[in-house]
Amino acid sequence: MAKSEIRGKRKRKQFTGSDEIISLTNVSKAYATGAPALNGVNLHIQKGEFVFIVGDSGSGKSTMIKLLLRELVPTSGEINVMGYDLVRIRHRKIPKFRRNLGIVFQDFRLLKDRNVYENVAFAQRIVQVPSKDIKRNVPSILATVGLAGKYKAKPRQLSGGEQQRVAIARALVNRPSILLADEPTGNLDPKNSWEIMKLLEQINENGTTVLVVTHNREIVNAMQKRVVTMKKGVIVSDEEKGVYIDED
């Protein structure tokens, strides 16, 4: 146990030497049928960045997220996330790698039979955090996302915005270095969408690298962050303080 902790620290220390937290080099991914989903993608993201990835369906966004989660392996190219070589990583190391990522989905994916507290504590139990630490961490993270008073509620008793906050709390409770949000506002009204985006921005200001895949033009244009635009499996533009480029 002690050995792996030391190893973990050493890895993180090594990693802080470089500021690049995500790097995709000439990454292509082809499925058995049809055109390649990704075609020679190069993307480098620094620690602490806030990046929007935009594009229509079929542009390769979902494939990119799956590659970053190591759900898929690229057909060719190199992917490096937090010092982990995702092409050559051993199967049994994948869980440990994923503990560095927090993930938020469009459809929240909360456990409907468990209350807010249990949904968040669930993430801590999975990585085997001691019970006494769970009791301290969960209320604190629920306060951060503004749900301190609702820890007993079941997901169906919450609004969409509140459910997404629970999902964000669950993604953050294990203190990941990177937060991946796949269409986090896709099921929310404009007011709730803004609140969630503000929350993500606040999380980013506290040091977490945030990657948001979205369709929401209004938010992308207003937030003045780095915008990576994808089309048919390639990156067509990558701009600091970018805007949502219209499809022609």
Partner: peptide, 16 residues
């Protein structure tokens, strides 16, 4: 299924 997929994303080991 849903719960298992979330567990995998969060970093649960095969054993867990």
């Amino acid at each position: 299924k849903e719960e298992i997929s979330i567990m995998k994303y969060i970093g649960a080991t095969d054993f867990f």
